[in-house]
Design a protein around this nucleic acid. Structure first.
Ligand SMILES: [Mn+2]
Ligand SMILES: [Mn+2]
Ligand SMILES: [Zn+2]
Ligand SMILES: [Zn+2]
Lengths: 140, 140
DNA sequence: CGAGGAAATGCAACTAAGTTGCATATTTCT
DNA sequence: AGAAATATGCAACTTAGTTGCATTTCCTCG
């Protein structure tokens, strides 16, 4: 495995003032290695033999989201997808692209859709989230 | 009530080649009068006395979505929000804004966030959906 | 190091959005 | 009106996510 992933996860937890527990380190490592947002059950599957209770995974994700280490990237089919906060500005995460043919989701970290104006008719806009749909390179 | 709403709903159904049934007309009228996306249970509540089975509402919404009359605007708390297709282009619906203070959602039909490029590193982008979050005029 | 208190985990039971199969009712067409 | 096509209602089911509570683990401080 990656020997320094463990250390990296520990640092992230300490920085966020969270207890460094085995479950949290394991979950963070899965997120660190994932290239795309993942669901609770996908995290569980990645853990394989040293499985965790799903309640623990959900509660860990909740803690990580609260500290800002992790984002709830989007929902699909009534399930939430989570990922490490990466390539984010204060007001916009990168767009997520879902292929309408094969169903896979990709992080489009290379570009950002321009932000909406910070004010519009009395609305104060703090955050913008963009979902894209179309054909991925493999399916196009 | 609005006397011509009924007729309008009927026309929409006929145009979409769907049977003109009482439940469908009732649901369409709720959507025609709603100013924002609504959930299944909100539609049921609006119908009040002449209630409909939730399965009927879900199946009706599915038919309406398939014909393009209705959009699944977004998901929140594991529930889908539906609305009539309005102020939409081929590639983008208007942005939806949710207030982080009071929780209400508004359709921001007045402006459109610029579209992502139609191609980006092999991705063919067909559709773009924008979710905004911040403070609504009442809470700002 | 070895408590002791704070916080995290696991388990079982629960909640609630959405789905499915099937019998019955309604709509449309002739 | 009658037949075929389609829609509705009901009950039972599926499944993502939550809650309460007993037990375990982690961190801090003597
Ligand atoms: Mn991403
Ligand atoms: Mn809208
Ligand atoms: Zn694809
Ligand atoms: Zn508000």
């Amino acid at each position: 495995m990656k020997p320094n992933l463990d250390e990296k996860a520990r640092r992230m937890l300490t920085t966020a003032a969270l207890y460094c527990t085995e479950p949290r380190i394991a979950i963070l490592k899965v997120l660190l290695e994932a290239r795309r947002p993942v669901r609770q059950d996908q995290i569980a599957e990645c853990l394989g033999d040293r499985a965790l209770n799903k309640v623990t995974i959900y509660r860990t994700l909740a803690s990580l989201v609260k500290t800002g280490l992790v984002h709830r990237a989007f929902m699909q089919k009534r399930a939430s997808y989570f990922e490490l906060a990466h390539n984010c500005t204060e007001t916009q995460c990168h767009p997520h692209f879902t292929c309408s043919n094969c169903g896979t989701t990709h992080c489009l970290t290379g570009f950002a859709v321009p932000m909406a104006p910070s004010r519009y008719r009395g609305f104060v806009i703090h955050h913008q989230q963009v979902r894209l749909e179309g054909l991925c390179p493999a399916c196009a």
